[in-house]
Amino acid sequence: MAKRSALTRRRFLQVAATAAASSALISCGRHAGPWRFFTPGEARTIEALCEQIIPADQDPGATWAGTIYYIDSQLVGHFRKLQSTYRSGSAACDAVCRAAHGQPFAELPFDQQTAFLQRLPNTLQPFFDMVITHTMQGFYGDARHDGNRDAVSWRMLGIPVIPIRGRDHYEFPGKG
């Protein structure tokens, strides 16, 4: 009997405190989208750029591989210094695109995006070069970096994700 009432009290205490704790935590839940750094608009632009750099064909491209997740998470990590470059770069890319085609980059049809990048204004070239570099890192880098889902690029290249290697059963002379 005593045991049961203790349990009830414990449960009561837990439930009682739940309300306070949850109100503090719900605000986290409102954080929309999976991004650490990008706004949803920026993410659309960057993802479209990534897919141009490594398009899907018989093998998946950068979008399927989630290459943008690599860039996004590094932008709050090792690439912190590049946050403003990404912010202004994607805005400039969309602005130039709007001026020329009346739409942001991600809204253009794929072939029109390609044509746009092939005749990129000089001012946007350094930004695009940087995105190329990071896309290559994410897509062809190890799957652990989140830009190469299921090691899709390594499998495309015919590289076993984890090789098979046994060890030699050596013995040191005079031991054992």
Partner: peptide, 19 residues
């Protein structure tokens, strides 16, 4: 693989040609 992405000799750096 990442050490090979700069490999193409003909200036191809991105797009389907690079892949």
């Amino acid at each position: 693989p990442y050490q090979a992405v700069d490999m193409p000799p003909n200036g191809v750096r991105w797009g389907k040609a690079h892949k």
